[in-house]
Simulated scan of single mutants.
Amino acid sequence: MRRYARTLVAFALATSVVTGTAGWVSTDAQQALTGPPPGSTQWRADRALGAELPDPERSTPGEVASFFAGLSSAERQLLVLRHPSVVGNLDGAPLELRYRANSLALIAADDSRYRSLAAPGRQILAFDPRGRGLVTEVFGDLRAAERVSVVVPGSDNDAGSFDRKVAAHGAPAGMARTLRTEAGPETAVVAWVGYTTPVGVGLDAATGTLAEAGAGRLTRFAEGLTADGLPEPAMFCHSYGSVVCGIAAPRLPATDLVVLGSPGMRADDVGALRTKARVWAAKDPTDWIDDVPNVRFAGLGHGADPADPAFGARRVPADEARGHAGYFAPGTDSLRTFAAIARGDAERAATAGAEGARALEGAAR
């Protein structure tokens, strides 16, 4: 009888996930984009260099980096010209080659949705036009940066919406751009739309299927950065992107995991993430995500609230942010703290969070 009662309670909580997110706003189930980059079949068959090329699916980013390190400049450029879609998405390949390869791939795509991405001066580190499209862009000088950050967005983001102008600081490119501006010229920030995100607030958003696929892609991407000689990044994970980061955490090379507007990380607390990274959490008082029940049952929901003190994450003040997409708005306490973390000044960021909490408590009295 006791077990039956617990089952009924858990079922009620799972049902509340549906009602707590204003119902299933979208039932547009998405198929996660997995596997190697487009053009991999032709790449595998190519013997232009007199030997097999590293398998895009099975080779580690470290193996890819070692392969390119052994090529001459002419051999590298030959591969860029023959296989731009593979080189442009190959984690571990030198970023300078990836920029050029993706520029060629965008021109070849000849798609009006991506015309702005092909503009001169943009640093596109990955581009895959399949499905809704995936894209990754760098802001700042990634090769020279002392500190690197990666923005991992949530639902409704893809290559077609990457450059949207409405609420620009809430879109992936806008988040990365404002963070880099605030953090300063010695940093670089990457906007990573490298996984298939949910559309709307529906079953995809309430389950971990897309996040599990995205976690593997995020881990490989971060490993590719370090294999190319770049610093371990700080991860800024928004909304459903925090689910991706939570699943990836045990194997993700990162200095910091910063989650904002999170529905949960599929972990009960910081210890359960099994990460060496510092873990931070932000949630502003007007964010609708606070209405989402923090439960996990029968595959629904993402568990404990990372912004709850019991979770054990460091606090990021967010009293000046507004709504679910306002954390990177210029002039906010959340953006100032994010910038301190991005610069590697974690102690100052922690102090800012503690001072903000004390000020809030004082105001309440």
Rank of each mutant, 00 (worst) to 15 (best):
G170A: 07
T207D: 14
P172D: 04
H238Q: 09
G224H: 04
W280H: 04
L203D: 13
L260T: 06
A227D: 03
S242W: 01
V244G: 01
L225F: 05
Y240F: 07
D204F: 02
V244H: 02
A168D: 11
A248C: 11
P233W: 01
L230S: 04
W192F: 02
A227S: 08
V270S: 02
E182V: 10
G174K: 05
P231Y: 07
V166I: 14
V259D: 05
P233Y: 00
A281I: 09
C237A: 10
A272H: 08
D228K: 09
A211C: 08
G271F: 09
I247P: 01
A211S: 06
A171L: 14
V258D: 02
A215D: 01
V190P: 02
L210S: 00
G264P: 04
L257F: 08
L210Q: 02
R266P: 08
V279Q: 07
E212I: 13
A215Q: 01
V279D: 06
L257W: 03
V243N: 02
D228I: 08
K165F: 14
K276D: 15
T219L: 12
G241E: 04
V259G: 03
G216H: 07
M175R: 07
A211V: 01
G224W: 01
V166T: 15
L257H: 02
W280Q: 02
K165N: 15
P185Y: 11
R278H: 14
A171M: 15
M175P: 05
A206T: 10
E232G: 06
P263D: 08
T226Y: 07
A173F: 09
L218P: 01
P231C: 11
L210H: 04
C237W: 04
R266H: 13
R278A: 12
A173W: 01
M235Y: 06
V259T: 10
M235R: 04
H238T: 06
W280P: 01
P263W: 05
R220P: 00
G200H: 07
A213S: 10
P253S: 11
V201L: 15
R177F: 13
G229N: 11
A168W: 13
T219C: 14
A167P: 13
G174C: 10
T219M: 12
C245H: 04
E182M: 10
G241V: 06
A167W: 14
W280S: 03
E182Y: 09
T207S: 15
L179I: 08
A171G: 13
P185C: 12
E186I: 11
I247T: 09
G246S: 12
T181S: 12
A206F: 10
